[in-house]
Design a protein around this nucleic acid. Sequence first.
DNA 1: GGCTAAGCTGAGTCGGCACTCAACTTCAAC
DNA 2: GTTGAAGTTGAGTGCCGACTCAGCTTAGCC
Lengths: 183, 183
Amino acid sequence: MPVDPPLRADAQRNRARILDAAEAVFSELGAGASTEEVARRAGVAIGTVFRHFPTKDDLLAAIMKRLLARLAASAGRLGGPDGLFEFFTGMVAEAAGIRAVVDLLARGGTDIRLPDAVGPLTAAVGELLGQAQEAGTVSDGVRLPEVMALLVSVSQGALYGGWDAELRTRTLAVVFAGLKQRS
Amino acid sequence: MPVDPPLRADAQRNRARILDAAEAVFSELGAGASTEEVARRAGVAIGTVFRHFPTKDDLLAAIMKRLLARLAASAGRLGGPDGLFEFFTGMVAEAAGIRAVVDLLARGGTDIRLPDAVGPLTAAVGELLGQAQEAGTVSDGVRLPEVMALLVSVSQGALYGGWDAELRTRTLAVVFAGLKQRS
DNA sequence: GGCTAAGCTGAGTCGGCACTCAACTTCAAC
DNA sequence: GTTGAAGTTGAGTGCCGACTCAGCTTAGCC
Protein backbone atom coordinates (compact mmCIF):
# COMPACT_ATOMS: atom_id res chain seq x y z
CA MET A 1 0.00 0.00 0.00
CA PRO A 2 1.14 3.55 -0.78
CA VAL A 3 2.56 5.60 2.04
CA ASP A 4 1.72 9.30 2.00
CA PRO A 5 4.76 11.55 1.67
CA PRO A 6 6.15 13.36 4.70
CA LEU A 7 4.58 16.71 5.50
CA ARG A 8 6.38 19.94 4.86
CA ALA A 9 7.72 21.62 7.99
CA ASP A 10 5.07 24.36 8.05
CA ALA A 11 2.33 21.84 7.50
CA GLN A 12 3.54 19.75 10.41
CA ARG A 13 3.53 22.81 12.63
CA ASN A 14 0.03 23.77 11.59
CA ARG A 15 -1.27 20.27 12.07
CA ALA A 16 -0.02 20.26 15.64
CA ARG A 17 -1.48 23.69 16.32
CA ILE A 18 -4.83 22.63 14.97
CA LEU A 19 -4.90 19.53 17.15
CA ASP A 20 -4.02 21.53 20.25
CA ALA A 21 -6.62 24.16 19.47
CA ALA A 22 -9.24 21.53 18.72
CA GLU A 23 -8.57 19.79 21.99
CA ALA A 24 -8.99 23.03 23.91
CA VAL A 25 -12.06 24.16 22.02
CA PHE A 26 -13.93 20.86 22.06
CA SER A 27 -13.08 20.29 25.71
CA GLU A 28 -14.47 23.66 26.65
CA LEU A 29 -17.43 23.89 24.32
CA GLY A 30 -18.23 20.27 23.58
CA ALA A 31 -18.34 18.53 20.24
CA GLY A 32 -20.79 21.09 18.93
CA ALA A 33 -18.20 23.85 18.76
CA SER A 34 -17.58 25.18 15.27
CA THR A 35 -14.60 24.40 13.09
CA GLU A 36 -14.30 28.13 12.53
CA GLU A 37 -13.55 28.56 16.23
CA VAL A 38 -10.87 25.89 16.10
CA ALA A 39 -9.24 27.62 13.14
CA ARG A 40 -9.33 30.97 14.91
CA ARG A 41 -7.76 29.55 18.04
CA ALA A 42 -5.10 27.75 16.02
CA GLY A 43 -4.28 30.92 14.12
CA VAL A 44 -4.86 29.42 10.68
CA ALA A 45 -7.49 29.86 8.00
CA ILE A 46 -10.44 27.52 8.02
CA GLY A 47 -9.35 25.99 4.74
CA THR A 48 -6.20 24.77 6.41
CA VAL A 49 -8.15 22.88 9.01
CA PHE A 50 -10.09 21.14 6.29
CA ARG A 51 -6.94 20.37 4.34
CA HIS A 52 -5.60 18.41 7.31
CA PHE A 53 -8.92 16.93 8.41
CA PRO A 54 -11.36 16.61 5.49
CA THR A 55 -14.41 16.48 7.76
CA LYS A 56 -15.18 17.65 11.25
CA ASP A 57 -15.54 14.04 12.31
CA ASP A 58 -12.00 13.33 11.22
CA LEU A 59 -10.83 16.12 13.48
CA LEU A 60 -12.90 14.85 16.39
CA ALA A 61 -11.61 11.34 15.85
CA ALA A 62 -8.03 12.58 15.89
CA ILE A 63 -8.29 14.41 19.20
CA MET A 64 -10.27 11.56 20.72
CA LYS A 65 -7.44 9.24 19.89
CA ARG A 66 -4.94 11.51 21.60
CA LEU A 67 -7.09 12.05 24.66
CA LEU A 68 -7.89 8.39 25.09
CA ALA A 69 -4.24 7.46 24.71
CA ARG A 70 -3.39 9.97 27.42
CA LEU A 71 -6.04 8.55 29.74
CA ALA A 72 -4.81 5.03 29.11
CA ALA A 73 -1.27 6.14 29.90
CA SER A 74 -2.32 7.68 33.18
CA ALA A 75 -4.19 4.51 34.07
CA GLY A 76 -1.06 2.58 33.22
CA ARG A 77 0.91 4.62 35.71
CA LEU A 78 -1.35 3.53 38.58
CA GLY A 79 -1.59 0.15 40.26
CA GLY A 80 -1.98 -1.66 43.56
CA PRO A 81 -5.11 -2.47 45.53
CA ASP A 82 -6.62 0.98 45.13
CA GLY A 83 -5.36 1.89 41.69
CA LEU A 84 -8.75 1.33 40.10
CA PHE A 85 -10.45 3.56 42.66
CA GLU A 86 -7.86 6.28 42.19
CA PHE A 87 -8.22 6.26 38.45
CA PHE A 88 -11.98 6.29 38.72
CA THR A 89 -11.92 9.24 41.09
CA GLY A 90 -9.51 11.17 38.93
CA MET A 91 -11.46 10.66 35.75
CA VAL A 92 -14.71 11.72 37.34
CA ALA A 93 -13.09 14.79 38.90
CA GLU A 94 -11.64 15.86 35.61
CA ALA A 95 -14.69 15.04 33.53
CA ALA A 96 -15.23 18.72 32.91
CA GLY A 97 -11.70 19.11 31.60
CA ILE A 98 -12.13 16.35 29.10
CA ARG A 99 -15.59 17.20 28.00
CA ALA A 100 -14.91 16.05 24.49
CA VAL A 101 -13.96 12.55 25.58
CA VAL A 102 -16.91 12.09 27.84
CA ASP A 103 -19.18 13.61 25.24
CA LEU A 104 -18.09 11.31 22.48
CA LEU A 105 -17.42 8.22 24.55
CA ALA A 106 -20.99 8.41 25.67
CA ARG A 107 -22.88 8.84 22.48
CA GLY A 108 -21.45 7.07 19.46
CA GLY A 109 -20.71 10.73 18.96
CA THR A 110 -20.62 11.79 15.42
CA ASP A 111 -20.04 8.29 14.18
CA ILE A 112 -16.42 7.84 14.97
CA ARG A 113 -14.73 4.50 14.94
CA LEU A 114 -14.07 4.37 18.64
CA PRO A 115 -13.33 0.71 19.36
CA ASP A 116 -9.70 0.93 18.27
CA ALA A 117 -9.10 4.11 20.20
CA VAL A 118 -10.84 2.88 23.32
CA GLY A 119 -8.97 -0.40 23.32
CA PRO A 120 -5.88 0.79 25.17
CA LEU A 121 -7.96 2.50 27.85
CA THR A 122 -10.05 -0.61 28.36
CA ALA A 123 -6.90 -2.70 28.59
CA ALA A 124 -5.36 -0.39 31.18
CA VAL A 125 -8.50 -0.38 33.29
CA GLY A 126 -8.67 -4.15 32.96
CA GLU A 127 -5.18 -4.34 34.41
CA LEU A 128 -6.18 -2.15 37.37
CA LEU A 129 -9.28 -4.26 37.91
CA GLY A 130 -7.19 -7.43 37.96
CA GLN A 131 -4.84 -6.02 40.55
CA ALA A 132 -7.69 -4.81 42.74
CA GLN A 133 -9.34 -8.21 42.61
CA GLU A 134 -6.08 -9.93 43.47
CA ALA A 135 -5.74 -7.62 46.46
CA GLY A 136 -9.33 -8.31 47.43
CA THR A 137 -10.47 -4.69 47.20
CA VAL A 138 -12.88 -5.53 44.41
CA SER A 139 -15.20 -8.53 44.36
CA ASP A 140 -14.35 -11.34 41.96
CA GLY A 141 -17.87 -11.19 40.60
CA VAL A 142 -17.18 -7.88 38.94
CA ARG A 143 -16.16 -7.88 35.28
CA LEU A 144 -14.63 -5.31 33.02
CA PRO A 145 -17.68 -4.29 30.93
CA GLU A 146 -19.64 -3.00 33.89
CA VAL A 147 -16.60 -1.20 35.24
CA MET A 148 -16.21 0.64 31.95
CA ALA A 149 -19.94 1.29 31.84
CA LEU A 150 -19.88 2.82 35.30
CA LEU A 151 -16.76 4.79 34.56
CA VAL A 152 -18.29 6.41 31.52
CA SER A 153 -21.73 6.91 33.06
CA VAL A 154 -20.53 8.51 36.24
CA SER A 155 -18.03 10.72 34.44
CA GLN A 156 -20.75 11.89 32.14
CA GLY A 157 -23.17 12.42 34.97
CA ALA A 158 -20.64 14.49 36.85
CA LEU A 159 -19.89 16.56 33.79
CA TYR A 160 -23.40 17.44 32.75
CA GLY A 161 -24.84 17.45 36.23
CA GLY A 162 -22.16 19.82 37.43
CA TRP A 163 -21.69 17.76 40.59
CA ASP A 164 -19.78 19.46 43.37
CA ALA A 165 -16.97 17.73 45.24
CA GLU A 166 -19.27 16.39 47.92
CA LEU A 167 -21.75 14.84 45.54
CA ARG A 168 -18.88 13.28 43.60
CA THR A 169 -17.49 11.76 46.77
CA ARG A 170 -20.82 10.45 47.96
CA THR A 171 -21.73 8.98 44.59
CA LEU A 172 -18.37 7.32 44.17
CA ALA A 173 -18.63 5.94 47.70
CA VAL A 174 -21.73 4.05 46.63
CA VAL A 175 -20.08 2.77 43.46
CA PHE A 176 -16.92 1.70 45.25
CA ALA A 177 -18.90 -0.06 47.96
CA GLY A 178 -20.72 -1.91 45.19
CA LEU A 179 -17.48 -2.93 43.50
CA LYS A 180 -16.18 -4.32 46.79
CA GLN A 181 -19.31 -6.13 47.85
CA ARG A 182 -21.07 -7.25 44.74
CA SER A 183 -22.64 -10.53 45.81
CA MET B 1 -52.90 38.05 37.66
CA PRO B 2 -54.65 37.68 34.28
CA VAL B 3 -55.77 34.22 33.28
CA ASP B 4 -55.51 33.40 29.58
CA PRO B 5 -58.84 32.61 27.96
CA PRO B 6 -59.80 29.01 27.24
CA LEU B 7 -58.58 27.59 23.94
CA ARG B 8 -60.94 27.00 21.10
CA ALA B 9 -61.81 23.33 20.54
CA ASP B 10 -59.64 22.94 17.44
CA ALA B 11 -56.73 24.64 19.17
CA GLN B 12 -56.96 22.26 22.10
CA ARG B 13 -56.96 19.31 19.77
CA ASN B 14 -53.92 20.59 17.91
CA ARG B 15 -52.06 21.36 21.10
CA ALA B 16 -52.51 17.79 22.27
CA ARG B 17 -51.45 16.40 18.91
CA ILE B 18 -48.35 18.52 18.92
CA LEU B 19 -47.38 17.39 22.39
CA ASP B 20 -47.85 13.74 21.48
CA ALA B 21 -45.89 14.13 18.27
CA ALA B 22 -43.12 16.05 20.06
CA GLU B 23 -42.83 13.35 22.66
CA ALA B 24 -42.50 10.67 20.02
CA VAL B 25 -40.09 12.63 17.85
CA PHE B 26 -37.79 13.83 20.60
CA SER B 27 -37.77 10.42 22.24
CA GLU B 28 -36.72 8.80 19.02
CA LEU B 29 -34.40 11.40 17.62
CA GLY B 30 -33.26 13.28 20.70
CA ALA B 31 -33.60 16.95 21.47
CA GLY B 32 -31.84 17.83 18.23
CA ALA B 33 -34.79 16.79 16.08
CA SER B 34 -36.33 19.59 14.04
CA THR B 35 -39.54 21.38 14.84
CA GLU B 36 -40.50 20.77 11.22
CA GLU B 37 -40.50 17.04 11.92
CA VAL B 38 -42.73 17.50 14.93
CA ALA B 39 -45.19 19.51 12.85
CA ARG B 40 -45.20 16.89 10.11
CA ARG B 41 -45.84 14.09 12.57
CA ALA B 42 -48.59 16.08 14.29
CA GLY B 43 -50.25 16.80 10.94
CA VAL B 44 -50.20 20.57 11.37
CA ALA B 45 -48.28 23.42 9.74
CA ILE B 46 -45.10 24.58 11.38
CA GLY B 47 -46.63 27.92 12.20
CA THR B 48 -49.15 26.19 14.41
CA VAL B 49 -46.44 24.61 16.48
CA PHE B 50 -44.88 28.01 17.05
CA ARG B 51 -48.24 29.55 17.91
CA HIS B 52 -48.63 27.10 20.78
CA PHE B 53 -44.97 27.04 21.81
CA PRO B 54 -43.18 30.29 20.91
CA THR B 55 -39.73 28.70 20.99
CA LYS B 56 -38.42 25.19 20.61
CA ASP B 57 -37.32 25.30 24.22
CA ASP B 58 -40.87 25.94 25.32
CA LEU B 59 -41.92 22.82 23.50
CA LEU B 60 -39.12 20.78 25.04
CA ALA B 61 -39.98 22.10 28.46
CA ALA B 62 -43.62 21.13 28.02
CA ILE B 63 -42.93 17.52 27.09
CA MET B 64 -40.29 17.24 29.79
CA LYS B 65 -42.86 18.26 32.32
CA ARG B 66 -45.27 15.58 31.10
CA LEU B 67 -42.63 12.89 30.98
CA LEU B 68 -41.25 13.69 34.40
CA ALA B 69 -44.73 13.77 35.89
CA ARG B 70 -45.36 10.35 34.40
CA LEU B 71 -42.11 8.98 35.84
CA ALA B 72 -42.94 10.43 39.23
CA ALA B 73 -46.36 8.83 39.10
CA SER B 74 -44.91 5.42 38.29
CA ALA B 75 -42.45 5.82 41.15
CA GLY B 76 -45.36 6.70 43.38
CA ARG B 77 -47.07 3.45 42.49
CA LEU B 78 -44.13 1.42 43.83
CA GLY B 79 -43.08 0.87 47.42
CA GLY B 80 -41.76 -1.65 49.90
CA PRO B 81 -38.21 -2.79 50.57
CA ASP B 82 -37.33 -3.21 46.90
CA GLY B 83 -39.39 -0.41 45.41
CA LEU B 84 -36.35 1.76 44.82
CA PHE B 85 -34.52 -1.05 43.04
CA GLU B 86 -37.52 -1.80 40.90
CA PHE B 87 -37.94 1.79 39.84
CA PHE B 88 -34.24 2.08 39.12
CA THR B 89 -34.26 -1.04 36.99
CA GLY B 90 -37.33 0.09 35.09
CA MET B 91 -36.00 3.52 34.34
CA VAL B 92 -32.68 2.19 33.08
CA ALA B 93 -34.37 -0.42 30.93
CA GLU B 94 -36.61 2.15 29.34
CA ALA B 95 -33.96 4.80 28.96
CA ALA B 96 -34.14 4.42 25.20
CA GLY B 97 -37.88 5.05 25.22
CA ILE B 98 -37.49 8.26 27.11
CA ARG B 99 -34.50 9.55 25.32
CA ALA B 100 -35.69 13.10 25.62
CA VAL B 101 -35.87 12.97 29.40
CA VAL B 102 -32.49 11.41 29.84
CA ASP B 103 -31.04 13.75 27.26
CA LEU B 104 -32.31 16.87 28.93
CA LEU B 105 -32.07 15.73 32.50
CA ALA B 106 -28.42 15.14 31.89
CA ARG B 107 -27.29 18.29 30.20
CA GLY B 108 -29.03 21.44 31.33
CA GLY B 109 -30.32 20.75 27.87
CA THR B 110 -31.39 23.77 26.03
CA ASP B 111 -31.65 25.79 29.17
CA ILE B 112 -34.94 24.67 30.53
CA ARG B 113 -36.08 25.46 34.02
CA LEU B 114 -35.98 21.92 35.23
CA PRO B 115 -36.02 22.22 39.02
CA ASP B 116 -39.78 22.62 39.24
CA ALA B 117 -40.44 19.76 36.87
CA VAL B 118 -37.93 17.46 38.53
CA GLY B 119 -39.27 18.16 41.99
CA PRO B 120 -42.06 15.57 41.97
CA LEU B 121 -39.76 12.86 40.65
CA THR B 122 -37.16 13.62 43.31
CA ALA B 123 -39.84 13.55 45.97
CA ALA B 124 -41.16 10.19 44.79
CA VAL B 125 -37.70 8.67 44.69
CA GLY B 126 -37.03 10.11 48.13
CA GLU B 127 -40.09 8.29 49.39
CA LEU B 128 -38.86 5.00 47.90
CA LEU B 129 -35.43 5.58 49.42
CA GLY B 130 -36.97 6.16 52.85
CA GLN B 131 -38.94 2.92 52.66
CA ALA B 132 -35.92 0.96 51.54
CA GLN B 133 -33.83 2.32 54.38
CA GLU B 134 -36.56 1.51 56.86
CA ALA B 135 -36.63 -2.02 55.57
CA GLY B 136 -32.85 -2.21 55.74
CA THR B 137 -32.34 -2.90 52.03
CA VAL B 138 -30.45 0.35 51.60
CA SER B 139 -27.76 1.64 53.95
CA ASP B 140 -28.64 4.60 56.13
CA GLY B 141 -25.52 6.39 54.95
CA VAL B 142 -27.04 6.87 51.51
CA ARG B 143 -28.76 10.17 50.77
CA LEU B 144 -31.10 11.31 48.05
CA PRO B 145 -28.72 13.43 45.94
CA GLU B 146 -26.40 10.56 45.11
CA VAL B 147 -29.35 8.30 44.38
CA MET B 148 -30.67 10.80 41.84
CA ALA B 149 -27.18 11.28 40.46
CA LEU B 150 -26.76 7.54 39.93
CA LEU B 151 -30.23 7.19 38.49
CA VAL B 152 -29.60 9.82 35.87
CA SER B 153 -26.04 8.75 35.10
CA VAL B 154 -26.79 5.09 34.68
CA SER B 155 -29.91 5.77 32.60
CA GLN B 156 -27.93 7.99 30.34
CA GLY B 157 -25.07 5.53 30.12
CA ALA B 158 -27.46 2.76 29.16
CA LEU B 159 -29.11 4.93 26.55
CA TYR B 160 -26.05 6.19 24.75
CA GLY B 161 -23.95 3.12 25.37
CA GLY B 162 -26.66 0.87 23.99
CA TRP B 163 -26.17 -1.58 26.85
CA ASP B 164 -27.70 -4.99 26.36
CA ALA B 165 -29.81 -6.66 29.04
CA GLU B 166 -26.85 -8.45 30.55
CA LEU B 167 -24.70 -5.37 30.90
CA ARG B 168 -27.62 -3.52 32.43
CA THR B 169 -28.11 -6.28 34.97
CA ARG B 170 -24.45 -6.51 35.85
CA THR B 171 -24.03 -2.76 36.18
CA LEU B 172 -27.12 -2.38 38.31
CA ALA B 173 -25.95 -5.27 40.50
CA VAL B 174 -22.88 -3.23 41.37
CA VAL B 175 -24.92 -0.11 42.08
CA PHE B 176 -27.46 -1.97 44.21
CA ALA B 177 -24.71 -3.69 46.19
CA GLY B 178 -23.25 -0.26 46.82
CA LEU B 179 -26.55 1.14 48.00
CA LYS B 180 -26.93 -1.75 50.42
CA GLN B 181 -23.44 -1.75 51.79
CA ARG B 182 -22.18 1.81 51.66
CA SER B 183 -19.91 2.00 54.70
C1' DG C 1 18.64 32.44 -7.11
C1' DG C 2 14.99 29.89 -9.71
C1' DC C 3 11.44 26.78 -9.82
C1' DT C 4 7.42 24.09 -8.61
C1' DA C 5 4.60 21.31 -6.00
C1' DA C 6 2.84 21.49 -1.45
C1' DG C 7 0.42 24.24 1.41
C1' DC C 8 -2.34 28.37 2.82
C1' DT C 9 -6.06 31.72 2.44
C1' DG C 10 -10.84 33.38 3.10
C1' DA C 11 -14.72 34.81 0.49
C1' DG C 12 -18.29 32.16 -1.12
C1' DT C 13 -21.66 28.12 -1.68
C1' DC C 14 -24.97 25.14 0.18
C1' DG C 15 -28.13 23.11 3.26
C1' DG C 16 -30.59 23.00 7.45
C1' DC C 17 -33.22 24.94 10.98
C1' DA C 18 -35.61 28.30 14.19
C1' DC C 19 -38.79 31.54 13.70
C1' DT C 20 -42.22 35.21 11.10
C1' DC C 21 -46.35 36.99 8.93
C1' DA C 22 -49.92 38.22 5.54
C1' DA C 23 -53.58 35.81 3.69
C1' DC C 24 -56.92 32.55 4.55
C1' DT C 25 -60.16 29.37 7.37
C1' DT C 26 -63.06 28.06 11.21
C1' DC C 27 -65.16 28.24 15.66
C1' DA C 28 -68.69 30.00 18.47
C1' DA C 29 -71.37 33.92 20.34
C1' DC C 30 -75.38 36.34 19.04
C1' DG D 1 -76.95 32.98 9.19
C1' DT D 2 -73.66 36.65 10.21
C1' DT D 3 -69.70 38.23 12.04
C1' DG D 4 -65.28 38.87 14.06
C1' DA D 5 -61.85 37.10 16.82
C1' DA D 6 -59.08 33.05 17.31
C1' DG D 7 -56.57 29.87 14.90
C1' DT D 8 -54.12 27.89 10.79
C1' DT D 9 -51.19 27.90 6.85
C1' DG D 10 -46.70 27.53 4.46
C1' DA D 11 -43.68 30.25 1.74
C1' DG D 12 -40.23 33.21 3.17
C1' DT D 13 -36.30 35.32 6.15
C1' DG D 14 -32.13 35.23 8.55
C1' DC D 15 -28.54 32.94 10.62
C1' DC D 16 -25.12 29.63 11.32
C1' DG D 17 -22.00 26.14 10.34
C1' DA D 18 -19.75 22.55 7.27
C1' DC D 19 -17.26 22.43 3.37
C1' DT D 20 -15.02 24.30 -1.44
C1' DC D 21 -11.74 26.35 -4.60
C1' DA D 22 -9.25 29.81 -7.43
C1' DG D 23 -5.53 32.45 -6.54
C1' DC D 24 -1.61 33.33 -3.76
C1' DT D 25 2.62 32.10 -0.74
C1' DT D 26 6.48 29.38 0.60
C1' DA D 27 9.43 25.38 1.67
C1' DG D 28 12.96 23.01 -0.07
C1' DC D 29 15.42 20.84 -4.00
C1' DC D 30 18.69 21.81 -7.89
